[in-house]
Computed example of a mutant assay.
Amino acid sequence: MSLRHRIGAGLTAATLVAVLAACSDSGSGDTTPDASNGEALTLYSGRSENLVGPLVEQLEGTLGFPIDVVYGGTPEITGKLVEEGAASPADVVFSQDAGALGLLDRSGLLEQLPASVTNQVPENYRAEDGTWVATSARARVLVYNDDKVQPQDLPSGIDGLLDPKWKGQVGFAPTNASFQSFVTGLRVSRGEDGAREWLEAFKANEPVAFEGNGPLMEGVDTGQVTLGLTNHYYWYGLADEKGADNLAVQLHFFDAGDPGALVNIAGAAVLATTDQREQAEQFVAALLSPESQTYFADETAEYPVVEGTETQTDLRPLSEIGTSDIELAELASLAETQALLQELEFI
Rank of each mutant, 00 (worst) to 15 (best):
T226L: 14
F254C: 02
L186D: 08
E330V: 00
V19E: 01
L331V: 10
A261S: 14
A332K: 06
A332E: 05
Y234V: 11
A9F: 10
A332W: 08
S88F: 06
G223T: 15
T32I: 14
F346A: 01
T12L: 11
L315I: 10
N37T: 13
K165P: 03
V188E: 11
P75F: 00
N213C: 04
L110N: 04
N264R: 08
V208L: 04
L334T: 11
L262N: 07
L113T: 10
S107K: 15
F296Q: 02
S116F: 01
T222F: 03
A87T: 12
T273P: 02
V208N: 04
E330W: 03
G191V: 09
R196W: 03
L341D: 02
R190E: 06
E57K: 02
G228Y: 04
A268K: 05
G99P: 04
R47W: 01
G191D: 09
N124W: 01
Q282E: 10
S189K: 15
F210E: 10
L216A: 04
Q250S: 10
I347E: 12
E320C: 00
T226Q: 14
T42K: 04
D255T: 15
R6Y: 02
A134I: 05
A268N: 09
V188M: 06
E211P: 04
A285D: 14
V284D: 12
A204G: 04
